[in-house]
């Protein structure tokens, strides 16, 4: 029996048969008038620095569900036990990724055996040990990875995303 875990985005209304349901509720909260609107506009988005977890919460090769840069953008933190691309922490082995497929927005499934994400929608595969590189698939971009920072107390902060997230024409609303 292969062991894998559906990376729960907190809303399990995705796939039943081949049908597709919403990745996020259409009744999502509208963003409030943000501070950014009152400030001079910058070239890139100002991502929030958000604490996602503490290193102590992570177990090797067990993804921890998170959301970033808001509650409607599911992702995970994973600790691999060896240094990987974009990895942070004392062993440079902790990474964070969006878990929505950048092809058609289906939720990805994590395979603990070979440490990959696979999309049940159209069979795309991504390698979180190689910067989210699409191993094979239909997407035209690699998997969005979080830019992470770790405090001395082990708190892990996300501070940016390196690709456009599926389902939004701006990574932040």
């Amino acid at each position: 029996m292969r062991c894998r875990k559906l990376v729960d985005i907190g809303r399990r209304q995705f796939l039943t048969g081949g049908a597709v349901a919403a990745a996020a509720s259409a009744t999502a909260l509208l963003p409030t008038t943000t501070q950014a609107q009152q400030m001079p506009i910058r070239a890139r988005l100002d991502y929030p620095s958000e604490m996602l977890a503490n290193i102590a919460e992570l177990t090797e090769n067990v993804p921890l569900d998170v959301a970033y840069p808001d509650d409607f953008a599911p992702g995970v933190l994973v600790k691999f036990g060896r240094a990987v691309e974009g990895g942070v922490g004392p062993d440079a082995d902790i990474v964070g990724f969006s878990t929505i497929c950048p092809h058609k927005g289906f939720p990805l499934i994590y395979d603990e055996d070979d440490r990959t994400f696979s999309c049940p929608g159209h069979y795309s595969r991504f390698d979180p040990e190689a910067g989210g590189m699409q191993i094979w698939g239909q997407a035209t971009q690699n998997l969005p990875q979080y830019i992470l920072r770790v405090e001395s107390n082990g708190d892990i902060f996300a501070e940016g995303v390196d690709e456009l997230l599926y389902g939004r024409l701006s990574n932040m609303f």
Partner: peptide, 14 residues
């Protein structure tokens, strides 16, 4: 300003 669902017509990749 809302997250669009899977398989949406209202998204395009870079």
């Amino acid at each position: 300003t809302e997250q669009q669902p899977a398989d949406t017509d209202a998204w395009y990749a870079p």
